[in-house]
Amino acid sequence: MENQWIVGVDLGGTTTKLAFVNTNGEIAHKWEIHTDNSDEGLNITTNIAKAIDEKLVELGISKKDLLGIGMGAPGPVNYEKGVIINAVNLGWKDHYPLKERLETETALLVMIENDANCAALGEMWNGAGKGAKNLVCVTLGTGVGGGVIANGDIVRGINGAAGEIGHITAIPSGGAQCNCGKTGCLETITSATGIVRIAKEELVKNGTNGFLAEKLAENGTISAKDVFDAARNNDTLASKVVDEVAFHLGFVLANIANTLNPELIVLGGGVSRAGTILLNQVKEKFTKFAFSPVKESTDIALATLGNDAGVIGAAWLIKNHKKI
Score class of each variant (00 low, 15 high):
2 E>C: 12
4 Q>W: 09
4 Q>N: 14
12 G>D: 07
12 G>C: 10
15 T>W: 14
18 L>F: 08
22 N>T: 06
23 T>R: 05
25 G>I: 09
32 E>R: 13
33 I>Y: 11
34 H>Y: 14
36 D>E: 09
40 E>G: 06
41 G>I: 00
49 A>H: 02
57 V>Y: 08
63 K>S: 08
70 G>R: 01
71 M>E: 02
72 G>K: 02
72 G>T: 03
73 A>S: 02
76 P>D: 00
83 V>A: 06
83 V>Y: 07
84 I>P: 00
85 I>L: 05
86 N>L: 06
103 E>Q: 06
105 E>G: 13
110 V>N: 05
112 I>F: 13
116 A>R: 09
117 N>Q: 14
120 A>V: 12
120 A>D: 02
122 G>F: 08
127 G>E: 04
128 A>Y: 10
133 K>F: 15
134 N>I: 10
139 T>A: 05
141 G>F: 11
143 G>C: 07
144 V>N: 05
151 N>D: 14
157 G>C: 04
160 G>T: 03
162 A>Q: 04
165 I>N: 00
167 H>N: 10
168 I>F: 03
168 I>K: 03
170 A>M: 09
170 A>L: 06
170 A>I: 06
172 P>Q: 08
177 Q>K: 15
180 C>Y: 04
181 G>K: 14
185 C>A: 05
193 T>G: 06
198 I>E: 08
205 K>G: 03
205 K>N: 07
207 G>Y: 07
210 G>W: 05
216 L>D: 10
216 L>Q: 15
217 A>I: 10
218 E>H: 15
228 F>C: 11
231 A>H: 03
237 L>Y: 06
239 S>R: 11
247 F>K: 13
250 G>E: 07
255 N>V: 09
258 N>K: 08
260 L>P: 02
263 E>Q: 13
265 I>Q: 04
272 S>M: 02
272 S>Y: 07
273 R>I: 07
275 G>Y: 14
277 I>W: 13
283 K>T: 06
284 E>H: 03
284 E>F: 01
289 F>S: 03
290 A>C: 06
297 S>L: 11
305 L>S: 09
311 V>S: 05
314 A>F: 12
322 K>R: 14
